[in-house]
Design a protein around this nucleic acid. Structure first.
Lengths: 192, 192
DNA sequence: CAGTGGTCTAGACCACCAT
DNA sequence: TGGTGGTCTAGACCACTGT
């Protein structure tokens, strides 16, 4: 397993598991061996193994379930809807050592068109926050991204106009109370 | 610090630091005390502290720099472009215990229009992958998301048509070689 | 109950950065 | 050289799941 220092151990472990998934040795929805057994097999500590597995969770490869085990995330054919599509893209870019940035084309609040209203299930004319961006990798345009979100969902978005305040601050303060109230960030309901 | 079991320790620590940042006790760009000193102050192990700090990195609050220290991430006024806008939104949703999903309206490859071509710096008519989605929180439509990416950037995207293969697999295989080549995922260049 | 993931610790060593 | 983050270990205990 370990040679000198090609990569951090946890990255090597993550790569191994990811390969087993992509090659089909670990089918979608299947359960992984128990952590403590994997530790013995791979010759790594449990902390290291868990760092690797957690990394794969962020990439959408695995999904943990507390008293039951680690499961291979469902493939697109099984899941009805798509969380984190763009996120995976950004992450992949990061792994390729490409710096993902974006150029803002439009950032404004305007009335919702008929189409937009229908898709969002709101009334036409409702104030809608518009954000158009060109996504760049290493400065090279690689994608166009257009986002529409009702202004009433996050009122602060409209006020700050995205030139003075940090986006993180805006979102954080918008959800400040719920954040304080909730307990822990847990995995979603499971149906392996 | 620790009571019975209100929250995991690392989450409590993260909340403490995050509060220091949001209240201004830790200004943007400022350096945090050394890990080992924070451990003494807070009465937690280094592993726990680092889990908390890493969590804040994912939220965009902090930024680590190897031999130098942990720094408070720059605010929007300082950064010229916007990485990870949507990602932060999803994360915030997760912290609010809302389940973010999405409904695919369109997923196809069509020739780029004049506008699209100009924004991406490509020739009109170039095969363009189109993905339109409605983003939902707890099943409630909250945003429209439209993405355009040239088919040649990720050829597999066009082939799989998003009905048979897992998106992760597609992206992973598309960047398979670079992934194998690169070393570790490091923080971006720093200018504290 | 046994098995599993979730959290936490104390300590060690390595790699990077500044001096 | 000394300080800093980055990785890794071995072991412990808690919380959840299913029988």
């Amino acid at each position: 397993m370990r040679s000198d220092h090609p990569d951090p151990l946890w990255l090597q472990v993550a790569a191994l598991v990811a390969e087993d998934v992509s090659t089909g040795r670990l089918g979608a929805g299947s359960r992984l061996p128990a952590e403590r057994e994997l530790c013995l097999r791979l010759g790594v500590s449990r902390v290291t193994l868990r760092k690797a597995l957690s990394h794969l969770v962020e990439e959408g490869v695995l999904r943990p379930s507390h008293g039951r085990g680690w499961y291979v995330a469902a493939t697109s054919s099984e899941r009805k809807d798509w969380p984190n599509r763009l996120e995976s893209f950004s992450e992949t870019a990061a792994r390729m050592n490409l710096t993902p940035t974006s150029r803002v084309l439009r950032s404004s609040v305007d009335p919702a068109t008929l189409d937009e209203a229908e898709e969002l299930g709101i009334a036409p004319g409702t104030p809608l926050f518009h954000l158009d961006r060109v996504r760049l990798l290493e400065g090279i345009p690689t994608a166009i991204d257009r986002t529409r979100v009702p202004a009433h969902v996050a009122p602060a978005l409209a006020e700050t106009d995205f030139t003075t305040g940090s986006l993180y601050d805006v979102l954080a303060s918008a959800g400040a109370e719920p954040v304080r109230a909730e307990a822990t960030i847990e995995a979603q309901a499971s149906t392996p």
